[in-house]
């Protein structure tokens, strides 16, 4: 951890290698995270770009012993939230059929599709599920990234899973 603090210090002085060593490994995971939340690769790219700049400006907040990943992912998460909040076409886009959609004749099938159900979830639910079930992060880290208490993160996860349950059970019965 001391090395991370040292990297942060060097990065703040303009050392690109230090910044790359500190944040670089998390750039692509952060993009995947943002893309999963926003469901738009280009927006995810912009979000990661802005998040990295904010991270650079907040390097002094990176304390000894604090992990880079939850810190940086929290910035990315906030950036996703800000982006969604500032786009007036947010609702319209969310109402659009996603990339998984097929023709109208597939409606019955898609209603049982877990991926479609995930896509229909709200961004905060999807964010929690992604961090906990896909990245296998502990609930404490999920909460840290989402900027909530651990209890609130647990509730979020519980509710998100409950919303997915019909798709999960239906998929479970599919041969």
């Amino acid at each position: 951890m001391t090395s991370e603090t040292g990297l942060a210090l060097r990065a703040r002085r303009g050392d690109a290698d230090a910044f790359d060593a500190l944040i670089g490994p998390w750039i692509e995971p952060a993009w995947r995270f943002a893309a999963a939340i926003l469901r738009d690769p280009d927006e995810a790219r912009d979000v990661v770009q802005e998040a990295a700049l904010k991270a650079f400006r907040k390097l002094d907040q990176l304390r000894d012993g604090s992990a880079v990943r939850p810190w940086f992912f929290a910035i990315v998460s906030n950036q996703c939230h800000s982006l969604r909040r500032t786009h007036w076409w947010n609702v319209v886009r969310m109402a659009e059929p996603d990339a998984l959609s097929g023709g109208p004749e597939d409606v019955a099938v898609r209603s049982l599709d877990l991926r479609h159900a995930l896509a229909k979830l709200g961004r905060e639910d999807r964010k929690a599920l992604y961090l906990f079930y896909y990245l296998d992060l502990p609930q404490e880290e999920v909460a840290q990234i989402m900027g909530t208490s651990t209890g609130a993160a647990k509730v979020r996860l519980h509710r998100a899973v409950r919303r997915l349950r019909p798709a999960l059970e239906a998929e479970g019965t599919t041969p």
Binding site: A16, F19, D20, I23, G24, I27, E28, W31, R32, A35, A36, P41, R45, V48, Q49, A52, L53, F56, A99, L114, R115, L118, A119, L129, Y130, Y133, Y134
Partner: peptide, 23 residues
């Protein structure tokens, strides 16, 4: 399900270098 979705998206090439350089 998340993994499948991710497999449909490919991370932009050179994203890390691009982001670090831009920052």
């Amino acid at each position: 399900a998340f993994r499948h979705d991710e497999s449909l998206r490919e991370a932009p090439a050179g994203l890390r270098d691009e982001v670090v350089a831009a920052v």
